[in-house]
């Protein structure tokens, strides 16, 4: 099947997936060198979800994400250097070194975080959409969360409230088949996650999250329907993570064979092969993308290395609008 997208767009999608992949490979390396500490959750294997979705949304839409948000943040335009610096804990990081990998924020880009309480970002997304609705702003709030989050009460409460109040939220469930080490069938009663939202009056659909074009189309359609109707919708993105849950995870709960099997659907390999086959993109293009990504990441690491540490005297900054003491 030939692709009905432009060469430029194909290159864009491929470029962003490769940027994320290389950025995260570098992050893992820097983690083992102890430059990056704390929790680090890699998106490797799930890039098509973040890239497809972020390309489908408008610049003016709101984004609420999880702790596995490097991909979304990069595609949204938070500079790689600021993300890297944040993971280093430096003052020039996108959250001033106070958030780390799990808490990337950018007011300028309507990127409302990196949330690390599973399910905790959903009510925030509902509230952002409520604010827009009350102000008459035609914006969509896109809220990413994992399959594990659908176990939480806040997921069900948020679907209900968004449907009841007709709020423009696009619920994007990144179903990677695991909540940490607990497989989908061991944590939800109905493995078909998209069965749930219609019970609250929220239309739901699923898409192959390993196919960047399919994701982009589906998210685009859903987002535009949310915008038109000013009502919430739900999209399940079926994906798989190739790496451990976090750098602490020994992956005792799944076999290497299972992971290897799934790697055959690597979203980057699949898309790259497709566009090469189509003759839309050449190996020279891909080499250029790789070279650019390497340059961008080297510069990002440099930016992080060169960043300053926030002076300890400023520790209480940003606790309140004005210091209370």
């Amino acid at each position: 099947m030939t692709l009905d997208i432009s060469r430029d767009h194909a290159l864009e999608l491929l470029r962003d997936m490769i940027r994320i992949r290389r950025f995260e490979e570098k992050s893992a390396e820097l983690y083992s060198k102890q430059k990056i500490r704390g929790f680090l959750h890699l998106y490797i294997g799930e890039e098509a979800v973040g890239v497809g979705a972020m390309h489908a949304l408008r610049e003016d839409d709101n984004i609420v994400a999880t702790y596995r948000e490097h991909g979304q943040a990069l595609v949204r335009g938070i500079p790689a250097g600021e993300i890297m610096a944040e993971m280093y804990g430096k003052a020039n990081g996108c959250s001033g070194g106070r958030g780390g990998s799990m808490h990337l924020f950018s007011a300028k880009r309507r990127f409302y975080g990196g949330h690390a309480i599973v399910g905790g970002g959903l009510p925030i997304a509902v509230g952002l959409a409520l604010a827009d609705k009350m102000k008459g702003e035609p914006r969509v709030t896109a809220c990413f969360f994992g399959d594990g989050a659908t176990d939480e009460g806040e997921f069900h409460e948020s679907l209900n409230l968004a449907a009841l109040w007709k709020l423009p939220v696009l619920f994007l469930c990144e179903n990677n088949e695991y909540a940490m080490g607990t497989a989908l069938h061991r944590h939800v009663s109905d493995r078909d996650i998209a069965n749930n939202p219609p019970a609250y009056g929220v239309p739901a659909d699923s898409v192959n999250g390993m196919d960047v074009i399919a994701v982009e189309r589906a998210v685009h359609n859903e987002a535009e329907l949310v915008r038109e109707t000013s009502k919430p919708r739900f999209l399940e993105l079926k994906t798989y993570r190739f790496r451990a849950h976090s750098m602490y995870d020994a992956e005792l709960y799944r076999s290497k064979e299972e992971v290897e099997e799934r790697k055959k659907q690597d979203p980057i390999d699949v898309f790259q092969a497709r566009v090469l086959n189509d003759g839309m993109v050449t190996q020279t293009d891909i080499d250029a993308i790789e070279a650019d990504a390497a340059k961008e990441i080297a510069a990002a690491v440099d930016f992080a290395e060169q960043g300053e540490w926030e002076p300890v005297e400023d520790i209480t900054r940003h606790t309140y609008a004005r210091d209370l003491s």
Binding site: I124, A131, M134, N160
Partner: peptide, 22 residues
């Protein structure tokens, strides 16, 4: 606004709305 019985979510929605300029 009368809310459903979902303390976590309507307080969270309040937080989101506050961040969103309300």
């Amino acid at each position: 606004r009368d809310t459903p019985l979902c303390e976590s979510t309507f307080v969270g929605a309040g937080i989101g709305a506050a961040i969103g300029g309300m």
